[in-house]
């Protein structure tokens, strides 16, 4: 089947999609957006978290056919998404993400690097999408709020301490910026 939807502000079309394919598979294998990760494919780790019409979901549990006509934001589009949010308006269309030095990162992405919250990094994309969404709703989270909001994202490397530091740092920087 064919599926048309919007990813990171760009219209996308996927063809010859097998009906049992997940949104995760379509993003990773058909649209060249492997940032969303395939750690468990059973909704138990959060590494494939994307925003579907603004709401964080596990993309492994969304059937590809269910996203027809809907809007998806992945980690690849997170910096632009955060930028548009801070500018307070919707940019007309997304553009391709860039790599390496000089890349403009969202506050939460930068905080993950600065706080040492990234080790193997496989959980990182999902955590970033979830953490960014939490900070959007709750700019001054308590530690317990952060833990609750991120309780659907497993990390095996860090013991979560540096992830807590990163989210606190992002919240603090966000507070300063306002």
């Amino acid at each position: 089947m064919r599926v048309n939807f919007t990813v990171n502000g760009r219209p996308q079309e996927a063809d010859d999609v097998w009906e049992g394919e997940s949104l995760l598979y379509v993003l990773r294998e058909r649209l060249g957006l492997p940032g969303s990760k395939n750690a468990c494919e059973q909704g138990e780790c959060g590494s494939c978290t994307v925003r579907l019409d603004g709401v964080p979901v596990c993309s492994c549990l969304v059937a590809a056919g269910q996203v027809e006509g809907r809007e998806v934001v992945t980690v690849e589009g997170l910096a632009d998404y955060a930028k548009q949010r801070s500018c307070g308006h919707q940019a007309p269309e997304g553009h391709d993400s860039h790599t390496g030095e000089g890349t403009e990162l969202s506050p939460v992405q930068q905080a993950f690097i600065d706080a040492g919250a990234v080790q193997c990094g496989f959980c990182t994309p999902g955590l970033l999408v979830a953490a960014d969404e939490m900070l959007e709703r709750n700019p001054n989270p308590s530690d317990a709020d952060i833990r609750e909001a991120l309780s659907g994202n497993l990390c095996r490397c860090t013991g979560y301490e540096k992830i807590m530091d990163a989210v606190r740092l992002a919240a603090a920087r966000q507070g300063e910026a306002v």
């Binding site: 909704g43 138990e44 959060g46 978290t49 709401v55 964080p56 979901v57 596990c58 549990l61 969304v62 979830a130 609750e148 909001a149 309780s151 659907g152 994202n153």
Partner: peptide, 9 residues
């Protein structure tokens, strides 16, 4: 129920 992501769906 499960996680925030699952509760959203």
């Amino acid at each position: 129920v499960a996680s925030p992501q699952i509760r959203n769906r």
